[in-house]
Amino acid sequence: MTAPVGIVLVSHSAELASGLRRLVEQISSEDVPLTATGGTDDGRIGTSYDLVLKAIEGADRGGGVIVLPDLGSSVLTARTVLDDHPRPDVVIVDAPFVEGAVAAAVTAASGADLETVVAAAKEARNVFKL
């Protein structure tokens, strides 16, 4: 069996990140490593370099990791972490936060590789709701 692809959810809000994590856990599989981080080190709205780095490390099981930020500074913080700790198997993905997370998790649960999980998250941008 191949190592699963991990997923990191990065938000400005700890509540938003943990809420999305709970949703994705219910839809996905417990075999998919999923971490969520939001807010600053002292619990305010914002993002934390150290918390993002720790979340990436926590989601890594050897199959690669995708990082899904919500917006603005969470994107900048995630990019900075990845610039400081470059790895070809850790990828930031430009995808809708909720839909991308669900698509990535379902795809990762099927045993897909990193490239396929990244593609699934990106494709979620084109899914119509109505």
Rank of each mutant, 00 (worst) to 15 (best):
P96R: 08
R44M: 14
A14D: 15
L68W: 04
S13R: 02
I56N: 00
V10C: 00
V75F: 10
R87L: 04
L130F: 12
V127H: 12
D113I: 12
S73I: 08
G100C: 01
P69L: 01
L76R: 09
K54I: 08
V117N: 08
A55F: 01
I92M: 15
V127T: 14
V5M: 10
I92W: 02
D113W: 07
D31R: 15
E99T: 07
F97G: 00
V81G: 05
N126C: 08
L23Y: 10
A103C: 04
G111T: 08
V98I: 15
V117P: 07
A59Q: 03
V98R: 11
S29M: 07
L71V: 10
D41G: 10
N126Q: 13
I27V: 15
S11W: 02
T77S: 13
R61K: 15
V75W: 09
F128Q: 14
G6P: 06
E57R: 14
A121Y: 04
Q26F: 11
K54G: 12
L71D: 04
E15S: 12
T116M: 09
G64D: 09
S18Y: 11
A36L: 03
L20I: 11
V8M: 04
D42Y: 12
G19L: 00
V106F: 07
T116V: 11
R79P: 06
S110I: 08
D31G: 12
L9Y: 04
S28E: 10
R44D: 15
G19E: 01
G39W: 09
V8D: 02
S18Q: 15
E25T: 11
R87W: 06
E15P: 00
T107D: 08
G100T: 00
A55C: 06
A108N: 05
T47S: 15
E57N: 12
S110Y: 08
H85A: 13
A120H: 10
G39N: 11
I92A: 09
R125L: 12
D84S: 14
D60P: 04
